[in-house]
Simulated assay, not measured.
Amino acid sequence: MPPTPLCLPTDADLLVLPSPAFDAPPPRIRHRDRITEDALRAMEGTWSMGRFAERRVSVLRLRDVWVAWEGLVFDRDGALYRDTVTQHSPAEVAEAQDAVLAAVAGGKQTAGQGTTDRDGPVVLCKKRGVGNYGHWMMEMLPRAHLVHSHRPDLEARFLVADAADPLRAVMAESLTLLGIDPSRIVAADGAPRRVAELLVVRGLSEHGVYMSPLVMDCADALSRKVEARAAMMPTARTLFVTRQAAGFRRLVDEDTLLMRAQEAGIVPVEPAQLPLPDQVALFKGASGIAGVMGAALTNIAFAAPGTPVTALAPAGMPDTFFWFIATLRGLDYTEIRCAPAGPVRGNMPWDTDLALDPEDAAGLFGATFATGQTP
Results as ranks from 00 to 15, higher is better:
Pro142Trp: 11
Asp332Cys: 06
His135Gln: 10
Lys127Glu: 14
Asp162Trp: 00
Asp119Ala: 13
Asp278Pro: 00
Asp38Trp: 12
Lys108Phe: 15
Pro308Asp: 11
Pro343Asn: 06
Glu173Gln: 14
Leu177Ser: 06
Ala191Ile: 02
Val65Phe: 07
Arg337Pro: 00
Trp350Met: 02
Gly107Gln: 06
Arg76Glu: 15
Phe240Thr: 14
Met49Ile: 04
Val252Ala: 15
Gln87His: 08
Ala111Lys: 03
Glu173Phe: 02
Val59Thr: 13
Val104Phe: 01
Thr238Met: 03
Gly107Glu: 07
Ala53Tyr: 06
Asp119Thr: 09
Asp162Lys: 08
Glu70Leu: 06
Leu274Ala: 12
Gln373Ala: 15
Arg329Glu: 05
Gln273Asp: 15
Ala367Ile: 09
Ala272Val: 11
Ala304Thr: 14
Lys126Val: 13
Ala79Cys: 05
Pro18Met: 02
Leu60Asn: 11
Leu312Asp: 03
Met293Phe: 01
Leu274Asn: 01
Leu276Tyr: 11
Leu198Ile: 09
Phe322Lys: 01
Leu159His: 11
Arg128Thr: 10
Ala315Glu: 15
Leu282Trp: 02
Thr235Phe: 01
Gly50Ile: 03
Pro358Arg: 08
Ile300Gln: 14
Gly291Glu: 07
Met171Cys: 10
Gly366Asp: 14
Ala105Trp: 04
His31Glu: 04
Glu173Ile: 06
Pro277Asn: 06
Pro25Ala: 10
Gly112Pro: 05
Ala105Met: 05
Glu155Cys: 14
Leu60Ile: 00
Leu312Met: 08
Phe248Arg: 12
Pro308Ser: 12
Leu356Arg: 05
Pro308Lys: 10
Ser183Cys: 08
Leu167His: 05
Ala230Leu: 12
Arg61Ala: 15
Gly179Cys: 05
Pro268His: 01
Ala341Arg: 12
Arg82Gly: 08
